[in-house]
Design a protein around this nucleic acid. Structure first.
Lengths: 181, 181
DNA sequence: TGCGGTTAGTTGAGATTTCTACTACAGTGG
DNA sequence: CCACTGTAGTAGAAATCTCAACTAACCGCA
């Protein structure tokens, strides 16, 4: 049973007498390619989107989530959860977007603490205008560069990573609960 | 011959009578899983690194590159190129790191415009201290979550993406050259 | 009812990143 | 040698993100 098999890897005590399991050469190569490729990819996509439509990637993502929600409306915290953004970050983003007329905020009736964020008609049009060229970007730099099988594998791998992280969060919370009991 | 097959996809004219090639459901799923998983992964890794060693991911990356360079020294622009960071960004990062005693800058002898960035002994020690727990993080949240084959596939895919982007840059430059001739 | 403990959201300060302009030097061609 | 064009690096302002309070409202419970 190694030190890194399961559970709360976030509480990594300074390892004791056991050796570090360094990455193998293959793992190292893959990890670096992932880091590097991702950095460059997101960079290009952000620039092209900005260029073509004047939206930042963050704003675009917000609009996409809202566009898919019933009433084109989502609670701030739901939005933050889906985007994996901090609540604070989302507040700032949404404030800017509201000033730009892309979204509106309204108090939530069922829960007076809550705030509903709704896409405006302007926001919708901006998204509709932006989407085609953004999709072309994603195709040009990612989807069309890979074989369908590769694209699938990429998605599967990162879905597993994402799922493990969310499970990990739940685990940490459970640990905290257990400790504080 | 579609509108997105080859060449300078960065100059995407508003498409005319041809339809947008939207992503298929599978492509969409994969793309989102990638975006989402990546966001969460980098977030966790940055936090854990910060927590365990007080280094930001950016600083860590700088130190890694320097540690692998002869004399633990690299030109600013080489460093920026390897990290896929803007020159400006690197200047700011390095200024902060120099203030913290992690690196030092010295004028470059062969080219008086250049600046050599060298890792200090302190920087080296900080990296050596930080590496084990960072590697554990990467294992815990990425490498050990995937099968070796998946990890390999992830690396291969993103290497292809990265390569295409660099080729794309070269292409844009060539285009600019051709246009300005 | 009223007291904690928790959750939703905001705010402002500080840190980082981006954008743009600027200086200095290198390399080329007349 | 000199102008011209391109490259290396920096600097400051503006935009964005993170972090640590803070307010308000919900929820369980005595």
């Amino acid at each position: 049973m190694s030190t890194t098999t399961t559970g709360s890897a976030t509480t990594r005590a300074p390892r004791e007498h056991d050796e570090v399991r360094w990455l193998t050469a293959d793992e190292q190569r893959a990890w670096r390619a992932y880091r590097d490729g991702t950095a460059r990819l997101l960079d290009v996509l952000a620039h092209e989107l900005e260029q073509d439509s004047g939206l930042s990637l963050g704003e675009y993502e917000v609009l996409v989530r809202l566009s898919e929600a019933p009433q084109r409306t989502l609670r701030m915290s739901e939005l933050a959860g889906e985007l994996a953004h901090s609540r604070s970050r989302l507040t700032h983003t949404v404030r800017r977007m509201e000033a730009a007329g892309l979204v509106e905020r309204a108090p939530c009736l069922e829960d007076a603490r809550g705030v509903n964020c709704t896409m405006t008609e302007t926001g919708w049009r901006r998204l509709v205008d932006a989407a085609p060229s953004h999709v072309e970007s994603v195709r040009a730099h990612l989807v069309d560069v890979l074989s369908p099988a590769q694209m699938q594998a990429l998605g599967d791998a990162m879905a597993a990573v994402g799922a493990a992280l969310q499970a990990g969060c739940a685990q940490v919370e459970a640990d905290a609960e257990a400790a504080g009991r």
